[in-house]
Simulated scan of single mutants.
Amino acid sequence: MDVRCTSIEEVRQHIDHIDRDVVALLARRGNLVAQAATFKKTTDDVRAPARVEQVIAKVRAMAGEVGASPEVVEQVYRAMIAAFIEQELHAHAALSAR
Rank of each mutant, 00 (worst) to 15 (best):
L25M: 10
L25Y: 12
L25I: 12
L25Q: 11
L26D: 05
L26R: 06
L26K: 15
A27Q: 08
R28Y: 07
R28M: 13
R28L: 10
R29N: 07
R29W: 15
G30V: 08
N31T: 07
L32D: 10
V33W: 03
V33T: 12
V33R: 09
A34R: 12
Q35K: 06
Q35N: 04
A36D: 06
A36Q: 05
A36S: 10
A37T: 03
T38Y: 08
T38I: 01
F39M: 09
F39P: 00
F39I: 08
K40I: 01
K41N: 14
K41A: 11
K41Q: 13
K41H: 07
T42S: 00
T42C: 01
T43W: 00
T43R: 02
T43D: 02
T43H: 01
D44P: 02
D44V: 02
D44H: 03
D45K: 03
D45V: 01
D45R: 02
V46S: 02
V46K: 01
R47G: 01
R47L: 05
R47Y: 02
R47M: 05
A48L: 03
A48K: 02
P49D: 14
P49W: 08
P49I: 08
P49Q: 05
A50R: 09
A50C: 06
R51M: 06
R51I: 10
R51A: 12
E53Y: 10
E53N: 11
Q54Y: 11
V55K: 11
V55A: 11
I56W: 08
I56K: 10
I56H: 11
A57D: 09
A57N: 05
K58V: 12
K58C: 11
V59E: 08
V59H: 13
V59Q: 12
V59R: 13
V59I: 12
R60I: 06
